[in-house]
Design a protein around this nucleic acid. Structure first.
Lengths: 338, 338
DNA sequence: CTGTTAGCGCCTTCAA
DNA sequence: TTGAAGGCGCTAACAG
């Protein structure tokens, strides 16, 4: 059995309180006593039981990460993983532990996240991959537990969100295509229940109109961020417009699917079709041709989210929106309209 | 403030003990009392405080996942993430929570994992990405906390490990190349402090010798599983042997690096050089040409690891080795020796 | 500077 | 079938 504070106290010939004091860096402890206690702590290999401490402090030093469909979506493998790394790193740097809690939209796992929060007594929650129509999100936002949402623009006193400036990102992509002389530009978006989809659509539209081109909803296809959606969306848009010369995709995975698809059709990219993706996942630069895309700082998103969460729960700030700038990465799938 | 068991007891007009009984499915409680308590629980939205429960039960219902360099290694992004998903899913299915604990080999983060285990009072630990020469691994293996290692073949009463049959995997790869008529076959291995590297080397050697070809250490290069190592290793081996016609890589990422490298050199794959990777990461099938590789069931590894861990800690089994079969996936980077 | 006392929220004998 | 009492390991007033 692990030694407890009581064992230490006994071995050091002091009271439990005194041990607790030296352990918690109290100043009012006789240096000699402190040394003695520390020595015993060392000898016994005593480690404070954080469960007991959590109970009395009413604080677990733990934050939860609620992820929707971590395993299911392949897009997640690219987007979420890096965010997760950022979260994990920052959380640990700040002295907290991270507990994972993933939910399946498909399964009947209708677990209100708040139950998880309250049972496990996490000090705060991060959420990602959550859809706008998710019924339980608002519970969390409204609750008094600090929370941070990734890519869901909601805030409250104790809730921040972190997102990329998707409007700007989409604008960059479209402006780039416009500058290359394209005018019939399709958009294969993500599903409508993602805030990022709505924002990217807005950016797409704004850039087009700023370029003097009327917005045509027929040029927009809604996919689900996955590879096959890129192919299907492209096929659909091409069937609607035979003068389509460029397509913007809401994810690199979809751009990749489209790339493979049109290459199979015998078309050349970018000569016959220009393609711009979104995310800048590792794959983008490995494709042949390398995919032009809009980079999101995923790792940074994770770090910022963790940081904000912990600042909120340490009462150093209030919920706020944190928007990271995207970056256009011009590679090989875009060329002037011939 | 969240209601406690005391609030429930008071509201239901019974004792705390009784509430505890109905919550823990005890049979000896009057149906009427039970109904009443349950109703109050419902009304108050009472959720048992798992911290308090953990303290008294001396059991947290939580398992820890110790990962080395989660964020750093790009190979991790491909291998570890899927294992993580498998672990996460299975752990959750079995009613446990997962807490992440990542260590940096680089940083001075010389945290003995056992400290984490003992402080957080996790019921068991999973470890992956750990090197053979890691000083703290043995502490965990020898400890009484249940543990499961990924890709480190050590067992004890309370420690299992999960791995792919790397010897068989390497053999498959080499036998495939042998059958295609190759005889000068290089091997770009991972670093020597990974058990998988040693096993794959063994498989490489066995297959070669079974094919009547003497093992030549000069044909083996040790990299670090990353993309650039594939290029460097290939360059090195080609400089040593001008009749090199095939190379086997201990990771797809290295195979990919090599592929890019030799393509840049103006060589054709597989015509001028046959390449076989390991892992079957998503990228492998997206490359041009698609990479022939040895598939590891990463998600399954995660699931098995979680499963074994929990069986050990629920005293349903003892530590054991779990070896999953690999699978050769022949694609486009291998061709007959001309 | 140090010890005593009283819980944190829950489970678990032991009686009734 | 139920309740009272004790304790899990620790922190936090409050005395001394």
């Amino acid at each position: 059995m692990n030694p407890t504070i009581k064992d230490v106290a006994k071995a050091a010939g002091v009271s439990i309180t005194t041990v607790s004091r030296v352990l918690n860096q109290y100043s009012d402890v006789n240096p000699k006593t402190r040394a003695k206690v520390l020595k015993v702590v060392e000898q016994l290999g005593y480690k404070p039981n954080s469960v007991a401490r959590s109970l009395v402090m009413n604080r677990t030093n733990t934050v939860g990460l609620v992820v929707s469909d971590l395993s299911r979506s392949r897009n997640g493998h690219h987007f979420m993983f890096e965010v997760l790394c950022g979260i994990n790193d920052r959380v640990q740097e700040l002295g907290y532990d991270l507990v994972l809690f993933s939910t399946s939209t498909t399964a009947q796992k209708k677990t209100p996240y708040m139950d998880f929060v309250r049972q496990r007594r996490v000090d705060g929650v991060l959420m990602m991959g959550i859809r706008l129509d998710d019924p339980y999100t608002h519970e969390v936002v409204a609750a008094s537990v600090p929370s941070v949402l990734i890519d869901v623009p909601l805030t409250s006193q104790t809730c921040s969100y972190v997102s990329t400036d998707n409007i700007a990102g989409a604008r960059m992509a479209i402006e780039h295509l416009l500058e290359l002389g394209h005018s019939r530009i399709g958009f294969v978006n993500g599903h409508a229940q993602a805030a990022v989809s709505q924002e990217r659509l807005q950016g797409y539209r704004m850039a087009l109109e700023a370029g003097g081109i009327a917005y045509d909803p027929q040029l927009v296809y809604y996919g689900n961020f996955e590879q096959e959606d890129g192919a299907i969306g492209t096929a659909e848009l091409r069937s609607r417009f035979d003068d389509l010369t460029a397509v913007f995709f809401a994810s690199d995975l979809m751009a990749l699917g489209a790339l493979k698809y049109v290459q199979n059709l015998g078309l050349r990219v970018p000569e016959n079709l220009s393609i711009v993706g979104f995310d800048d996942i590792e794959l983008a630069a490995l494709m042949q041709p390398m995919i032009t895309t809009v980079r999101q700082k995923r790792y940074e998103m994770g770090r910022s989210a963790a940081e904000s969460l912990i600042r909120i729960l340490e009462q150093q700030e209030q919920g706020r929106g944190i928007i990271l700038p995207p970056e256009l990465v011009v590679r090989e799938t875009t060329a002037p309209h011939s």
